[in-house]
Design a protein around this nucleic acid. Sequence first.
DNA 1: ATAAATCCTGTAGTTACTACGGATTCAAGA
DNA 2: TCTTGAATCCGTAGTAACTACAGGATTTAT
Lengths: 137, 137
Amino acid sequence: MTNKCDSVSIGGLSKLTGCNIETIRYYEKASLMPAPARTEGGHRLYSKTLQRRLTFICKARRLGFTLQEVRSLLEMTDGGYSCDEVKQVVLNQLSVVRSKIEELARLESNLETMASQCSGGGLPHCAAVDSLFNMTD
Amino acid sequence: MTNKCDSVSIGGLSKLTGCNIETIRYYEKASLMPAPARTEGGHRLYSKTLQRRLTFICKARRLGFTLQEVRSLLEMTDGGYSCDEVKQVVLNQLSVVRSKIEELARLESNLETMASQCSGGGLPHCAAVDSLFNMTD
DNA sequence: ATAAATCCTGTAGTTACTACGGATTCAAGA
DNA sequence: TCTTGAATCCGTAGTAACTACAGGATTTAT
């Protein structure tokens, strides 16, 4: 699974990163990962550099960046990028995340209200259902 | 665009809800919206009830619920659920919402860390990008 | 040496839309 | 009333970001 140069197979890389095999191949096809070295028989071999690159992609995806955004983050690391440009992308993503949190907090309190209106019996009617359609946002 | 019974065309509904026309038709095909009334010529006419239903769907979608989750919220209002069953679904959705909030809060703090590491100049290097490569989560 | 595990390519399916294209239908002005 | 121009119809195809086969080749462990 590993050779003397710390290269790993696609399965090894999958275990290291938590990214599934099909997804790794998909990233290669989508040009986020470069074509890796191959064994005699054609199996992919990933160097430490590529391992780090995939780790980066996975983290960025977990942070909610689109593949297009990840691509531009990677281009920033590959080519010349300015700190301003990076900060711009990060702050933009931060504001997206913050507004999602706000919206979810509103829904949370709406759901709490609904739950508190349930009398909880086996009755065929529930005040919470009516409140569902009357939520004020 | 509106008649005496407060029915609106699909375009009117689109403007009211912010949901685009193709999406409204898609929700009908996906059985989230029932088939609405039609004009003589076959154009869709949406009653107040359906307007409220779509508004609900859009809110739930903006909050990150999948269509499948929206469907089960809607089934509470359509099918004859008992108060106990409703409460169950509501509490379940509540825990889903809460874990989404937690997850987003983690993303928020990770992004804040990234942003704080940006010195912000036109410099050719950015600590935030390095931190993405080295982040332990 | 052989069986089990892993990997290969390529295609098709998934979710939740979005964008067309060509044919009606509707609404508003002359 | 007639005539446009905007809106709507339906069906198909494309999008993002995967995920799941199928059927065969390669690698690894016993």
